[in-house]
């Protein structure tokens, strides 16, 4: 009885494995865009995936896959040469010596492919004890500390203790946290700070800038330095997202208006991006 049952289990297992093997072989693997951005903390991976997949669905077998942690994302960057990667330029720059991938597209906002980070404090904050302040930031701890360390300022802006960083979902939260006393300083983009001026002038007027970062390129799409035809098609689709209503929404969720080509990737490492004047030249979907 026992051996009969064993044989049945074996046959069922063999059939299931066979079916799985055939199913895997027959299903075409979609081309994936992996996404990770340590510059923002807002938890919205599900809507990003939903809106990107909705946009991509009508063009082919593509999918968007946000990744939650940096280590997993870095493994994917190193081990999935066929995929595309959407990541912060800061992260790409930190990985550039370990990978052969190349920056292909960069995000645009208000006509610029660059952004700066600012450290802002309440106007009445003394600059003598800056390293003791609680700093609200929407970036990951690692990213925020790196940006603070590289800031140009007359003061040392690196917190005495990493626990002084209060990680919040987005820049506007960081700025309002200073206004309402939950933090004494905010690390935010120049764009967000200027947006506060339009949105809530009284709060804006209470703040002052005490540190400025170098200029960073915005969110970057990275792929093989010799993209295959299908990768090239997907890059073109991403490049033209701003032309369609279904593409505009995921772009807005990313905080971008459009994408533009990086014409000379070599100079990306040395002198920054050289941007194409014709952002949509070359590729057609």
């Amino acid at each position: 009885m026992h051996s009969k049952l064993k044989r049945i289990i074996q046959k069922v297992s063999a059939t299931v494995l066979l079916l799985i093997t055939f199913a895997c072989a027959s299903a075409e693997t979609p081309l994936t865009i992996y996404f990770y951005n340590p510059e923002i903390n807002i938890n919205r991976n599900s809507i990003l995936k939903h809106k990107f997949d909705q946009f991509l669905a009508s063009f082919g077998n593509y999918q968007f896959q946000p990744v939650n942690d940096q280590a997993t994302f870095e493994q994917l960057v190193k081990n999935e040469p066929d995929a595309l990667f959407m990541m912060s330029s800061w992260l790409f720059h930190s990985l550039k010596d370990e990978i052969t991938l190349q920056a292909q597209l960069v995000g645009m906002k208000n006509g610029s492919a660059y952004y700066k980070k600012l450290l802002v404090v309440d106007k009445n904050t003394s600059t003598s004890n800056i390293t003791d302040l609680t700093i609200a930031s929407a970036g990951s701890k690692k990213y925020s500390l790196a940006v603070l360390k590289g800031m140009q300022s007359g003061h040392n802006l690196t917190p005495a203790n990493a626990d002084q960083l209060l990680i919040v979902p987005k820049d506007v939260d960081a700025l309002l946290a200073v206004g309402f006393g939950m933090a004494q300083a905010a690390l935010c983009t120049e764009d967000s700070f200027e947006q506060l001026n339009t949105l809530y002038k009284n709060q804006y007027d209470q703040l002052k800038v005490i540190g400025r970062s170098q200029v960073f390129p915005r969110l970057t799409v990275v792929a093989s330095n010799k993209p295959s035809d299908i990768q090239d098609q997907l890059l073109t689709l991403i490049d033209q997202m701003s032309d369609t209503p279904t593409g505009k929404i995921p772009l807005s969720i990313l905080g971008l208006d459009s994408w533009t080509h990086i014409e000379n990737a070599e100079s990306f490492y040395k002198t920054g991006f050289q941007l194409s004047q014709e952002s949509r030249g070359g590729r057609k979907p």
């Binding site: 938890n43 809507i47 609200a136 209060l166 987005k170 960081a174 309002l176 939950m182 505009k248 807005s252």
Partner: peptide, 27 residues
């Protein structure tokens, strides 16, 4: 210090509200 924002696009459309698309990066 942190906010979580949920936006109902069906209502935005139904009430014909003018939505600032730049704000979607907070949703």
């Amino acid at each position: 210090a942190g906010s979580k924002i949920s936006l109902n696009l069906k209502k935005v459309e139904s009430y014909q509200l003018h939505l600032n698309y730049d704000a979607l990066d907070s949703v």
